[in-house]
Write a protein that binds this DNA or RNA. Structure first.
Lengths: 190, 190
DNA sequence: GTCTATATACGGATAGAC
DNA sequence: GTCTATCCGTATATAGAC
C-alpha cells in the first residue's frame, strides 16, 4: 500500500462526499472535486479511473461510517430505546445541513434511482443497514415480526422530515417532528 | 393565440412533464423531449427559448392540476375527512409510478433545492398548495392553530412513504403505511 | 505521482433556409 | 412554424511530458 497516495485518495473521497451531498452526484464535476482538493484533473484520474469509481468509494465510506456509528452506540448504550432515540437525534444534530441539503442518504438514493444508476443498490445499503439495525433494536424491546415493518416506518418518517425541512427550509418543523416521533416511539414500547 | 402552435406547445409540456418525472430535470435533454414529441430540436426553441422556460411551464401545469383536483374534491365530497382520505389515496393510486420514480412533487423539489435552482420556490408551490388545503380541511374538522403543523406532518409522512417505496421498490410497504396513516388520521379527529 | 495538453462527446442555444 | 446546420461551453476521459 502506498502512503502519500493513500492519504490523497482519502482527501479526494472526503471532498467528493461533501460535494455529492451539497450539489448532487451528477451536478458535481471532476473539476469541482479537484479544485477542492487542490490537485489537477489529470492527477485525479491516477486515483480514480471513472466517476462511478469514486461514487463507489464514497458509498463504501458512508456505509462503514454508519456501521461504525451503530457499533459505537451498541457499546455505549445498554438500552435499545436509548439507541433508537440517538438515531432520531441524528435529525436534530444535523438540522442545519438537512435544511440546506436534505438527507445525505435519501437524496443520493433518490438521485441514483431516478437515473437507473448501476450503483443504486450499493447506495441502498446505507438504508438497509439502518433498517436492519433498527429492526434488531425493536425486537430487543419486545416487538415481534412487526419489528421490521416498524423499522421501515421509522426510516420513512425520518426521510419525510428531512424532505420537508429541506423544501421549506424550516428547522422549527424538524424540531416539532422529532418531538412527535419520540412520543410515538414511547407509545410503541411500553 | 395561435392554434396549431398552442397544441404543439401543450404536447411539449406533457412530454417534458413525464420525462422530468422519470429521469429528473437535469438528466433530461432537449433531444429527449424533442424525440418523444416527434419534432426537431430547432423547432423546440421556437416554443421555448430556454430550458428553464419549459420547466416553468411544467411547474405551472402541475400546480394548476393540483388546484383543480382539490377543487373537484371540494365539490364532490362534503366531508373534509373524506377529502383528506382521498389525498392519502393518491399514494395507493400511483403506487406503480411511485415505486419506479418516487413522488413527482418531492423529487422535483429536492432536485431543484440541491442545485439552488432559480425556480425552486415555484416548485415549492406544489407543496404549499397542498399544505394550505390540508390546513383548511383540518380546521373544518375542529383542529385549531395546530392544523397547519398537522398538515405539514401529513405532507412529510407522504413524502417519506414515497421515498422509501421508491428506494426499496416495495409497494407492500406503501400499502401498509397508507393503512397506518389513515388510522392515525382517524385518531386525530374524533 | 503529478502535471499540461488534448481527444471526444454532448448539451444548450442560435442562424438562417424553407 | 418547422427544419438543418452550426456555434460554444463544459464534462468525462486519455496521452504523454516531467
Amino acid at each position: 500500500m502506498g502512503h502519500k497516495g493513500e492519504a490523497l485518495r482519502q482527501r479526494i473521497i472526503v471532498a467528493a462526499d461533501l460535494l455529492f451531498y451539497q450539489r448532487g452526484y451528477e451536478n458535481t464535476s471532476f473539476s469541482d472535486i479537484a479544485k477542492d482538493v487542490g490537485i489537477s484533473r489529470g492527477n485525479f484520474y491516477y486515483h480514480f479511473k471513472t466517476k462511478d469509481e469514486i461514487l463507489n468509494a464514497v458509498i463504501d465510506t458512508r456505509v462503514s461510517d454508519i456501521e461504525q456509528m451503530l457499533n459505537e452506540w451498541g457499546k455505549q448504550y445498554p438500552d435499545p430505546r436509548q439507541r433508537i432515540q440517538h438515531y432520531i437525534d441524528i435529525l436534530t444534530n444535523n438540522q442545519e445541513n438537512i435544511k440546506s441539503h436534505g438527507c445525505p442518504i435519501g437524496s443520493l438514493c433518490s438521485e441514483l434511482a431516478k437515473q437507473n444508476h448501476a450503483l443504486q443498490q450499493d447506495a441502498n445499503k446505507m438504508l438497509t443497514v439502518l433498517r436492519d439495525w433498527l429492526t434488531v433494536q425493536l425486537k430487543e424491546l419486545g416487538l415481534g415480526k412487526e419489528a421490521r415493518q416498524t423499522a421501515m416506518h421509522l426510516l420513512a418518517r425520518s426521510q419525510g422530515i428531512a424532505s420537508i425541512t429541506n423544501a421549506f427550509e424550516d428547522k422549527t418543523f424538524l424540531q416539532q417532528e422529532v418531538k412527535r416521533l419520540k412520543q410515538w416511539l414511547d407509545e410503541q414500547i411500553q
